[in-house]
Every structure is written in C-alpha cells, then in structure tokens.
Nucleic acid binder design. Structure first.
Length: 466
RNA sequence: GGUCCCUUCGUCUAUCGGUUAGGACACAUGGUUUUCAUCCAUGAAAGAGGGGUUCGAUUCCCCUAGGGACCGCCA
C-alpha cells in the first residue's frame, strides 16, 4: 500500500477564502489520519494575476488555523519544463495534436454557439488534419486528443460513481500558442510527480478530473483517488467567492474568532461523526474520514461560528486564552499596557463569561484598560443625589479595608443598603456606573476586585460623580 | 441551452428498510441570578412532490420540481 499523500493547490490570485481553508483542512486531516503527507502547491502559472502577497497570505492563513504542510511549498511555475516535456510526449505518441485555429476563430465559434443556444464544443478541426495545410502565420496550440466514443467513470470517494459520455469532453488545450502549459496539464503532471494518492478538492473541479484522468491514462500513470467535496455556499445559496464578505480568515480573526474554533466549525461544515460537535485537533485527526462528508453544499452560519467560538473561550485553558487575547489586541486593537495586563489576567474568568469573541472580552474589559471612563450618556443620568450619597457612604467604609474579596466587600455593601433603606440594585447600580461608566457589566464585587483599591477610590471620588 | 451533482427542522447534521425521525446552533417560554450575561429546564420546528419495489420506506428505483457546479489559450 502506497503512503497516502494529499495536497492543497491554490492559485495565488486572491486571498484564500474559507472554502479553500476547509479543502486544505480536509486534505490535511485525511493525510494525518492515514499517517501520510500533506503538501502545499502554489499554482502560480497565471503570471498576470499571481501575486506574491497572496502566496504569503495563503501560507499565513494555513499556519494560523494550524495546518502545516510537509516539506517546502511546491511552486508550480518552477516545473513548467516538466509539463512541456509531457505535452511533447503526448504529441509524439499521438495523444495530442497541433491546432492552428486562431483565438479569434475560436471566439467567433463560441459566440455563434451562444447565439444559437447550443453548447459550444471545439469542433476538433485539426485533430486529423494534415499539417501541410497549416497556415504559416499562426502559432499552434497543442490540444489533447480526448476520447470520442464510449463513457468514462469517475469513482469518486465522496459522490460515488459518476459516468459521462466521452464526447462531452472537448479536445482541451494543454499548451498555449506561446508554448506555456495550461492548468489541466500542469496539475496532472505535478500530482503524478508528487506521488499524490488522494485528490480532495471542491466539486467545481469535477469536469477537470475527467480531463486529467485521460492524461494519466495516456501517460500510463497510476490514477490517484478522487474525492470531490461539495462547495460552501453563501446564505443566498451561491458558491462562495473571494469577493463575498466574511470570506477570508482575516474577516474572522479580526472580530476575535479563534483558530481552534474556526477549525472546528469548518470541520463540521459538511462533515460529521455521529453526534459529536466539538473536536480537539487530535480528535479531528483521529476521526476524520471521507465517508463522513455529505453530498450537498452547506451554507455558512455566523451564529454557529460564534457559538463554537464561545465554547472554546469558556472551556480552553485560561493561560492560553490570555495569550491569544493579548495577541489579538496587539493585532487588531491597541496593545495593552503592562500594568493593565495583570488586572486583565486576574479578571479573565469573569470577563470571558459573557463573551462570544475575543473582541467581546476586549469590550468587557475596556473599563479596566482605560484611564478615563467613558460614561454612557443615559446611564450617567441615573446618578442622582440619592446615588451620590450611596457612593459616598460606600467610600467611607471602603476606605477602611485593605484586602479586597467578596467576603470583605459584601458586609459593606449590605451596610450601605441598610443605611440608605434601599435594595441591592440601589447600591450596585451607582457603583457599577461609577466604576465602569455603564449599568451593564460584570458583577460589582468582580469589578471592584479587578480594579484594585486605589483605582476604585479614584473613580468613585471623581468630580464627575459629585 | 448542454453535461454533471444535490434535496431531513430556519441552519449544520444523525438515521446505512422497522425510531414517538435524534443532536447541535438559532428561536420561544420558565427557573437560578446582582444589572447585562452565563447556567439549567421546557417547547415549537424537518423527510420537496408524485409514482413504483417491499409485509413495511426518510432510507432502494423512476419521474417531476427546485437548487447548485461546470461549459476559458484562468486555476
């Protein structure tokens, strides 16, 4: 049994979107599950549109979500000579031929077909024509001599057997008239040379697979296995594209979605293992299989992403969460000053309690990080004379304490409640507004402890409250 | 238009001929609570339609409908 090898082969012509990330994830998981290798191949043969920044973005994205390729990135453009060599071989053994149709001629044919509403397929004009008739002034393209009779069957690992009439596959171009190889040729040659055993890709590649299989057959190469996974759709039910909003990893990381959570979400989108919803990295490797992949496209659901992220926030190791939070702030918010960092760290347990994202934690912890409170304009109005008395009564008692804990603070609060003939809200609310600027927020004891005695005193005695 | 694929709660899905069709998210209600949340409990919510096959179909087959992908000298 050959060692399993999978690959992810994006073209660096735009930012990687999460559909691509999922494809990469499935390939990676499958190879790891089988103790095999996973390779990253950058298909940069479209010189016009390929950009190095996109290549970097792809590599960065995969790394962010925890996918690591074995070996170096395979750069397709460096292998062009090999592709051309194969094309010439196909030409030599009669599996390909020179086509002297100009691109203008082809365009006109397509246009005519469109107008007549009949499917366009290259008419194989030069398939059997004598080269002697070739026009001197046109450079030929090389076309693959596709099968005309019979049918081909793709034994797809996800979709089952797919059979099509061979004559629906046209004689596709493998070498352009400038001598450069096209996608189907390059991809086949690379996959063969890289010893790829399983090609897992979006099912928008299905027709390509029939073309590539024919190249394999013509070259007498051993066929790899194919698995075409359904595409991810937008809410509108269309194929997700780079232009869609919330489609790149950055769109998620900037609102504080964590890599593990997104990885978990993407894994469960179109794949399932019994009723299990949460998978650690090890569990995903252990349980991943092709049988669990569904056949129908699935839609992106933000509330579910949020919910899984929330699960991770609440259940992951707090030190690890803190590190991720600090990193997040550095990247997308302001870097947190070191004296505030400790306060945040100590308060993470309750700050995370009401957070779905790292951004929520940031917002919940704002009151700790700021030097000057931003008062909610409606809430500050709640500080009336009564509230001011409550605050000053509290301060009078608070002054005497030296260690902060719920046990110490609770009697003080209860005392103030009694002396002011009010209830908990009558004390808790003014204090919360005075300390955080808002009537919504963490528990009042948590707030006080998180700020420390000095800061609490400073805020409660501020001019704005008197 | 041609080829191919898909179709279970709003969403992601379980079921591999016999289930009160299960779970999760979202939603609704109630409870806990120190505000907002969390948490807990409960509830509403699905087999596209029509034919077969079968003692029995969500499950197998066919048709219809709907949706999607592809149809580049892009990848």
């Amino acid at each position: 049994m050959k060692k399993v090898a999978t690959r992810f082969a994006p073209s660096p012509t735009g930012p990687l979107h999460i559909g691509g990330v999922r494809t990469a994830l499935f390939n990676w998981l499958y190879s790891k599950n089988k103790n095999g290798s996973f390779y990253l191949r950058i298909e940069d043969t479209d010189k016009e549109r390929s950009k190095n920044e996109y290549k970097e973005q792809i590599i960065k994205s995969l790394k962010w979500i925890g996918i690591e390729n074995d070996g170096n990135e395979y750069i397709q453009s460096k292998k062009i000579e090999d592709h051309i060599k194969v094309a010439n071989e196909l030409l030599k053994n009669g599996h390909a031929y020179k086509c002297y149709c100009s691109s203008k001629e082809i365009e006109e044919q397509k246009l005519r077909a469109k107008q007549k509403k009949i499917p366009y397929i290259y008419d194989r004009k030069w398939r059997d024509k004598n080269e002697a008739e070739a026009p001197k002034d046109t450079k030929p393209t090389i076309r693959f001599k596709s099968k005309i009779d019979g049918t081909s069957i793709l034994k797809d690992l996800v979709q089952g057997d797919i059979e099509i009439e061979n004559n629906t596959i046209e004689d596709f171009i493998i070498l352009r008239n400038d001598g450069s190889p096209t996608y189907n040729l390059s991809a086949s040659v690379d996959d063969h040379q890289m010893n790829i055993t399983h090609i897992i890709r979006g099912d928008d590649h299905k027709i390509n697979t029939f073309k590539q299989m024919q190249i394999y057959l013509a070259m007498k190469w051993e066929l790899p296995f194919f698995a075409h996974i359904p595409l991810i759709h937008t809410i509108e039910g269309k194929k997700l594209s780079k232009r869609d909003k919330a489609s790149t990893l950055d769109d998620y990381s900037k609102i504080g979605i964590m890599p593990d959570a997104l990885r978990n979400y993407l894994l469960r989108l179109g794949w399932s293992y019994k009723d299990k919803e949460i998978f650690t990295l090890d569990e995903s490797i252990k349980h991943f299989n092709l049988e669990g992949i569904g056949k129908s496209p699935s839609k992106l659901d933000m509330s579910r992403i949020l919910s899984i992220n929330e699960h991770y926030i609440k259940n992951m190791d707090e030190t690890y969460l803190f590190d991720q939070f600090i990193e997040y702030c550095k990247l997308f918010k302001n870097e947190i000053k070191s004296d505030k960092k400790d306060k945040i760290k100590r308060s993470l347990t309750f700050l995370k309690n009401k957070a779905k994202t790292l951004e929520d934690i940031f917002n919940n912890g704002q009151y700790i990080m700021v030097d000057e409170i931003n008062f909610n304009q409606d809430d500050i109005k709640l500080i009336d004379d009564e509230a001011k008395k409550v605050i000053s009564d509290f301060c009078a008692q608070f002054e005497k304490v030296d260690t902060l804990s719920k046990e110490v603070l609770e009697p003080i609060v209860n005392g103030v409640i009694k002396s002011n003939d009010t209830n908990f809200k009558g004390v808790g609310q003014p204090l919360r507004i005075g300390l955080t600027g808002s009537k919504f927020g963490p528990g009042i004891y948590d707030i006080i402890i998180s700020l420390g005695k000095e800061e609490v005193t400073k805020r409660l005695t501020s001019k704005k409250l008197s």
